[in-house]
């Protein structure tokens, strides 16, 4: 089952729409609550990242019988050094974004913590694609 969402960069009022919809679907499927929680936290963080940093993005969620595969593709500044960005506390968010309670530099580490599999590809000046896969049962 495929769910697609467009994300508007800079519009924090709409941040969380995708994670909220995905959460509803997973609850209805009867996916274990703690599994849903990890997926939603990872997806929400990644969604906010697009809003905070990119001009626009597309989120494609593929819900399978045993797992969820999420792709978040954005047009944006890209990430220069992914391993640096994965460190807790590292942030390039503007003062404005931080004042709104975002951009504390916990985003990517938090995604990593909650994703079973995480893959990030990025080109500076073009954009970033994040793949998150979470399984419903522990393999």
């Amino acid at each position: 089952m495929k769910l697609n969402f467009q994300v508007e960069g800079g519009n924090f009022a709409k941040a969380g729409v995708a994670s909220s919809e995905v959460k509803k679907v997973l609850k209805k499927l009867g996916v274990p609550p703690m599994v849903i929680r990890r997926i939603v936290v990872a997806l929400y963080e990644a969604e906010v990242n697009i809003v905070a940093h990119a001009q626009q993005g597309i989120i494609s969620v593929d819900v399978r019988h045993d797992k969820v595969e999420i792709e978040l593709r954005d047009k944006g500044p890209g990430i220069g050094d992914i391993s640096q960005a994965m460190q807790e506390g590292f942030s390039t968010a503007s003062e404005e974004v931080r004042a709104m309670g975002f951009g504390a530099g916990m985003g990517l580490p938090n995604i990593k913590k909650n994703a079973d599999e995480l893959n990030i590809e990025s080109k500076v000046g073009e954009g970033t694609t994040v793949h998150i896969t979470n399984y419903f049962a522990k393999p």
């Binding site: 089952m1 609850k27 209805k28 499927l29 009867g30 996916v31 419903f136």
Partner: peptide
């Protein structure tokens, strides 16, 4: 104890089929 009530079926595969049908 949690008692989740919003699922479409207790069997996840069946819930899946039901959700696709509902959509």
């Amino acid at each position: 104890q949690p008692r989740p009530m919003v699922h479409l079926d207790t069997d996840m595969e069946k819930a899946f089929a039901k959700m696709e049908k509902a959509r």
